[in-house]
Amino acid sequence: MGWLLASPYLIYSAIFFLIPLFWALFLAFTNWNLISPEYETVGMQNFLDAFFSPSVRAAFWVTYKFMLMFVPIVIAGSLFLALIIHHLPRWKGLFAVGYFLPYLASGVASSIVVKGVISYNSPLNQFLRNALGWDVDWLGSPILAPLVIALMMAWKFVGYYALLFLAGLESIPKEVYEAAEIDGAVGWKRVWHVTIPMLYPSFYTVTILAVGLMFGIFTEPYVLTGGGPEYATHTWQLEIYNQAFEKLNAGYGTAVAIINSIVTFASIFVFRKVLEKWGGKHGWE
């Protein structure tokens, strides 16, 4: 009976995860181009090519660069937002939903809006040029382009992650704060020594989600920069898409996708261990 009840999920997993996974594992060792009826097995060649490819190497480092920018910004932003909403006397739900809305916006639509806002002749740039003499090349600079994308993604996800922090804040018992107050922890001390450690489960979830997200960035760089300038915004997903669908190297693209999943898994594992160590210090198991 148990198997029968579990069967919908098992069948779903088999069709949409297991079969594609085994198929991908097989494809990664071939030179199939997605449309030809013929292909050959090439052993480890795709993995070796990927290992020495400058664009794959760029995707590897760019992901961590995005992580360095996005994760602190989105955690600080969403925590700050959650704290404000938490202390609101009323309409908490309304504000929480309001800040969540950007999460629902299409990545393509918001990228096009951002492109307009930072275009050469936008009011923002005209002001910077006329008032301050700054002629900023937002998407042409290898430093600014990833920052623009990281900020844009932070804007999109801050409301969503704030909800997770808000749930954590709401679940902290009042007694903990009262005890801390008696011990003299007020203001920032209270936030630092009580609220943040008590929010460990939310921090854990948000950090893992945010880190995982960095390995799946596609739409924003695809629309805004195409991966440039000089690979400064070239992500794993762009590399996989370009190889599999633009250059018709499906076998190679699959190998890159497998490497991407291994790197993602390893990175999340490291973050988990670090977070668990931090949580352990504060009594979280």
Binding site: K115, I118, S119, Y120, N121, S122, D137, W138, L139, G140
Partner: peptide, 14 residues
């Protein structure tokens, strides 16, 4: 040549 992203540069006379 202007190589920065520009919205409707020809139409706006940029």
């Amino acid at each position: 040549v202007l190589t920065k992203e520009t919205k409707d540069p020809f139409e706006s006379g940029v």
